[in-house]
Design a protein around this nucleic acid. Structure first.
Length: 681
DNA sequence: TCTTACCCAGTTTTT
DNA sequence: CTGGGTAAGA
């Protein structure tokens, strides 16, 4: 009789010698989530309840109990978030955690498509289009389709891009979308449908994919090739998804397909923190989850560990005023703490002075700058503050502002690199060729046609009717490309391109080319961190470098910098002290949302997210006078979300110059004496 | 067909 | 204030 050998389950193997005391370091619900054996699990987690912590312990637990890290997939909202989580997991357990596959849905799909793209008719070296690239493609298609000569009310390229993106992400058709969101364009339904098809055909012909294609083409792959689908989802033994409330239909479907084989899927989210509906997020995905996955275990995290009770009181109060109701009442064990303060300032300069001085005071009291954040609705809301911070030599980084790769001269260089990667990339050719003197849209189109249809070396003059107007320049371009092909490293390549580009730069940006030359040098330096041109380009497309991060490099400073961030980019982070600036009607809530109830609710949740980032101190400020182009100066109204909050929850403050003169015209009576020192130091 | 000069409209949040 | 579109000139 054969001897019986019992295979122990993974959990049993692990239980014997766990390095981490999960029971001791997590609360009961967190523990249940982190150490669950498998199957579908939905974790509903309020702000600050240790959602990230739970996921980190979950990763450590899985690795520790013997799951191979390569077979764990952790999908987060930004690549930064997944990097940080895996780093923390590595500290908690060991370096194995850094081998976990982590990233955004988009970066994960990119990995899949780089391997399998030929199965759906794309080359492996397809180019990733960012939003403005895809707008350019749409515009080129529009010209080629003869839709240029329509009247002025035809949507602009950026608008077209966002319409098409919404169509893909929400799974609607163009007409329905127009009826619902853009009735003013209904006259053009037929043209838009034609353009949409042309756009798809163009991308396929030249090997281009936009952000949405990364998701939707991955799904096509799953649908069309069963064996590949099976192979991919077999590799994914455990799937963990963060910020589930901000996934869209495509992403929810990807979750379903990826976990089809093993069914070990954990989704974590909070419907009250959904702030991406504008780009197609479906918070309902959270509630659908138990329906999609039968026998889902639902766990709730309710105890807030982040903020003091006064901060949560304000958060609860704000959320109470949403049209859509949330069954949420955050509570904390940190009962003691200052009331959040609302601070009107005469104008945005005084607001900046107040913020900067308070920050300097906190720093003197021992709070490190990187534990302080200034949050705002839109990238430009912080301009005045940035000037003041520069004036007072306070180092800062800004997230969510302009990206390096959005600067025109950087885009030019990137276009050259993309051609080296994918010589069929017509939209990059289009950009590169029009930089030549004597080449406009029409000539560029002819040249591209020749380049992409002629066989042989794309960087060689063929038997074509080139015009003498640009022939010398074209030769110089082709020479550079041939040279770059033999370059030893990506950095060498970038430097060849930059050298070639220098005269173009001087001609195109006659006024300010020295500053741009510096940018290009930095850019070349950045490329040295990447093994391959492909990884450099992908990273630029999926994880764009913040402009200020680059400037920070130029002035090395041991002190870790203050954080400036859009509220969107601050998602998932926490800080000792938070300033929310420009809390104005028309800013937060944004003026674009004012006539749409759902949009207003999203703005309200945005403020909720901002408030719940704070651990100890929270200041909400606004200028009472605002300047707007054309309209000049006028009295601004504070955000409706804070205007009606009782003083027992949100303490009104008044700024006073050190001469004793009171600033501004806001609430005169409610003076908070301890704020007096803050101005005029 | 490309360049220049002019006029008008738009102006968020992100992978 | 910028960028994009139009019209005239090279």
């Amino acid at each position: 009789m054969a001897r019986r050998i019992v295979l122990k389950s993974e959990a049993d193997v692990g239980r014997r010698s766990l390095a981490i005391d999960y029971r001791g370091e997590l609360n009961e619900q967190q523990y249940a989530a982190a150490t669950a054996s498998g199957g579908p699990i939905l974790v509903i987690a309020g702000a600050g309840t240790g959602k990230t912590r739970t996921l980190i312990y979950r990763v450590a637990y899985l690795v520790e109990t013997g799951v191979r890290p390569e077979r764990i997939v952790l999908l987060t909202f930004t690549r930064r978030a997944s990097r940080e989580m895996l780093t923390r997991a590595s500290v908690l357990l060991d370096g194995r955690c850094s081998r976990v596959k982590g990233g955004t849905f988009h970066s994960y799909c990119l990995g899949v498509l780089r391997r399998y793209a030929p199965k759906i008719g794309f080359p492996n070296n397809f180019t990733i289009l960012d939003a403005s690239d895809s707008a350019d493609v749409i515009d080129a298609v529009r010209t080629a389709a003869g839709l240029r000569k329509t009247d002025r009310r035809f949507p602009k390229k950026r608008r077209l891009q966002s319409i098409f993106s919404a169509v893909v992400n929400q799974g609607t058709d163009i007409e329905d979308l127009l009826v619902e969101r853009y009735p003013q364009f209904l006259d053009y339904v037929d043209q838009l449908v034609e353009l949409y098809r042309g756009y798809a055909a163009y991308k396929e012909r030249y090997g281009l994919m936009d952000y949405d294609d990364l998701l939707s083409k991955s799904l096509v792959l799953f649908d069309e090739d069963d064996r590949t689908a099976k192979a991919i989802s077999s590799e994914c033994k455990h799937l963990l998804v963060d910020e589930y409330q901000d996934t869209n239909r495509l992403q929810a479907e990807l979750v379903r397909r990826l976990s089809a084989v093993h069914r070990n899927v954990m989704a974590v989210g909070d419907d009250a923190q959904s702030i991406y509906r504008f780009r197609g997020a479906e918070p309902a995905n959270i509630f659908e989850f138990p329906r999609v996955f039968a026998d889902t275990t639902i766990l709730k995290l309710e105890q807030n560990y982040r903020s003091t009770q006064p901060i949560l009181d304000l958060a609860n109060h704000v959320l109470d005023h949403a049209t859509e109701k949330y069954e949420k009442e955050l509570f904390s064990e940190k009962q003691l703490g200052d009331l959040p303060a609302v601070v009107p300032a005469p104008d945005d300069q005084d607001e900046s002075r107040f913020v900067t001085q308070t920050i300097l005071q906190l720093r003197e009291d021992g709070v490190p700058l990187n534990r302080i954040a200034v949050l705002f609705r839109s990238g430009f809301n912080s301009y005045a503050l940035e000037m003041e911070l520069n004036r007072r030599n306070v180092p800062f980084v800004k997230y969510g502002g302009l990206k390096l790769s959005e600067a025109a001269h950087i885009k030019d260089i990137i276009a050259h690199l993309r051609i080296l990667e994918n010589p069929r990339d017509a939209i990059s050719w289009n950009r590169v060729l029009q930089l030549l003197e004597g080449v406009g849209p029409k000539t560029a189109r002819d040249l591209i046609e020749w380049i992409t249809t002629d066989s042989g070396d794309p960087y060689e003059l063929k038997d074509r009717p080139y015009s003498p107007r640009y022939i010398e320049e074209l030769k110089r371009l082709f020479n550079m490309f041939r040279q770059a092909r033999g370059a030893a490293s990506t950095t060498d390549e970038v430097e060849l391109v930059v050298a070639y580009y220098d005269p173009v730069l001087k001609r195109k940006y006659f006024d300010d080319f020295p500053k741009r030359q510096q940018d290009l040098e930095h850019f070349a330096g950045l490329s040295s961190q990447y093994q391959t041109r492909e990884s450099f380009l992908s990273s630029l497309a999926l994880d764009p470098i913040e402009l200020t991060a680059l400037e920070g490099e130029a002035t090395p400073d041991d002190e870790s910098p203050l954080i400036l961030s859009t509220i969107h980019s601050a998602k998932g982070l926490e800080f000792h002290t938070v300033f929310v600036i420009q809390a104005l009607e028309g800013v937060l809530p944004s003026s674009y949302s004012l006539n749409d109830g759902e949009a207003i609710d999203e703005e309200l949740r945005l403020l909720y997210v901002a408030i719940t980032r704070a651990e100890q101190n929270l200041f909400i400020s606004y200028p009472t006078v605002q300047y707007r182009r054309f309209e000049g100066e006028y009295f601004a109204r504070p955000s409706r979300f804070i205007a009606e909050v009782p003083e027992s929850i949100l303490e009104p403050c008044v700024l006073v110059e050190d001469t004793g003169r009171q600033l501004g015209s806001g609430a005169e009576d409610a003076r908070k004496p301890e704020m007096d020192h803050l101005l005029g130091a």
